[in-house]
Design a protein around this nucleic acid. Structure first.
Lengths: 270, 270
DNA sequence: GATGGAAGTTCCATTATGTGGATCTATGTT
DNA sequence: AACATAGATCCACATAATGGAACTTCCATC
């Protein structure tokens, strides 16, 4: 599904020493989406076999990966456990949730809450339109910021230098005919979003899927996020989305305000 | 909530070198449930300040933790991202899901799927009775095996030496009046569960909550798990649970069979 | 507004730990 | 049986982690 990889681009290793390398290996296995064999991993990491082998053993020993009988590596359960603690204790999500529910009642469509992390939006909550029995399937999902409503909204609330820094790190994959293909195009739209106070996704990430989003920025907690209302293009046309822009901005504003109130000022009240 | 900790028991560091220490720090912060300050962490880890400080910086740099303006540490979003990939690509859960849905239709109560990891059960799926809009709130949650239906069912499918090894590692916290207080009591019940093929939770973990569970064991993939049907004691009495035992065992059997079929034999067909 | 103390950060000589090329072993292919 | 491929192991070497101590910042108290 997410297999966009063209060549085995050797992963950039950060300045976090051993931990960074271990995380690169972990991420390589986890994002692959299918069980990875030793050789696959060695190639995608571009580190010597001995080193990768030891890192893998340690990751398995720690429960972050599991090794099957066919010697392939898969994500381990400890990741789920860690994430549970992370998600269930997330105060931002807790505070936002009632507002998401209200937004869902008002619009009847799917509502997302996502947080910006460098070039990606990570979804931290979702209120679905159809009452599927399944667990909300996208919590923790990461999508590129440049082609999602929440992403562009969140980016629009960054100070220009920070925006430029992040935009420079992006690679513009053309998911649909409407996806931005360059930083310039994105930045131009961001300017407009700043004026309007809300962003649209016009089938830029997935065909037939549109949304309207508004930014939530709490700089004193280094939190840049967004809310969106999403629907299928056949049901939710641009006029409808534009009509919802106000309530979405309103919800974002309320969340922002309440987070400020309940999380308190940061250090030095910055 | 899970604050059972009495004294700051210095965490045991595994033989996984730097990664092990880093994970110990990460886990200390994540399981604390509230933002942890530097000194708190140093104490609960029992490592020198310089070392802990560097580990924390690296964890923050990697996005596994975030540091707030008040200098406290909290779980980072990267954990959610990793877990998403881990959960959404979990073939065991995919295969089990239709069976869970059917079980839910038959009983009308909450159905859980959990996997054993040493002394803990980690929930990987849940089908809820009331259609809450919220994301299923327990995916990734870890509960002790000795006081949950799924836990005891899963344990019952282990070979005796393995069971003994794991039981020896448990600490028996008395959650309710009905919780097992010793390995001996647990092992005695396990014997009975082996004969019956299913396990009950008689308000052993939480008051007023009961369940009936059956084991799913796929040794060729080192997978020991269980399914359960859970309900509030006032609505679901023991007679009702006993009546459901057959369908729960049936579902477990079907899942086991289908997993065997679809995941194929392990190496050497063991 | 000075003083004391606690919390967090930085430094750096020491050495433990991770590194990675080479070698060995097991599996399964022609 | 010989070969090929993938994975595991080894070990001299150098990098990167260690941790005690010094330093800085913040805040409470007088």
């Amino acid at each position: 599904m997410d297999e966009i990889k063209t060549t085995d681009a050797e992963v950039e290793i950060a300045g976090t020493g051993t931990l960074g390398k271990a995380m690169a290996v972990l991420e390589a296995v986890v994002t692959a989406g299918s069980p990875q064999r030793f050789t696959d991993i060695v190639q995608s990491i571009g580190q010597p076999r001995g080193t990768v082998h030891r890192l893998l053993s340690h990751l398995v020993e720690e429960g972050l990966l599991v090794q099957g009988r066919d010697l392939s590596y898969e994500p381990g359960l400890r990741l789920l456990k860690l994430a549970y603690r992370s998600w269930s204790g997330n105060r931002f999500r807790d505070i936002a949730e009632p507002h998401l529910l209200r937004l869902h009642e008002l619009t009847g469509e799917t509502v997302h809450l996502g947080v910006l992390r460098e070039t990606e939006i990570i979804y931290v909550d979702k209120v679905e339109s159809r009452q599927t029995v399944r667990m909300s399937s996208q919590i923790g999902k990461a999508s590129p910021a440049y082609c999602t409503g929440i992403g562009k909204a969140a980016l629009s609330s960054l100070p220009q230098p920070e925006l430029d820094r992040i935009a420079a790190k992006m690679t513009f994959h053309p998911f649909t005919a409407h996806t931005h293909r360059s930083a310039a195009a994105l930045l131009a739209e961001i300017d407009e979003i700043r004026r309007e106070g809300h962003a649209f996704d016009r089938e830029e990430h997935e065909a037939e899927i549109c949304c309207v989003a508004a930014p939530i920025a709490i700089p004193e907690h280094d939190l840049v996020a967004g809310v969106s209302v999403t629907g299928p293009a056949y049901r939710v046309n641009m006029a409808q989305l534009a009509a919802w822009a106000d309530v979405v901005r309103g919800a974002a504003g309320k969340i922002e305000e309440e987070v400020r109130m309940r999380l308190g000022p940061g250090r030095n009240g910055r």
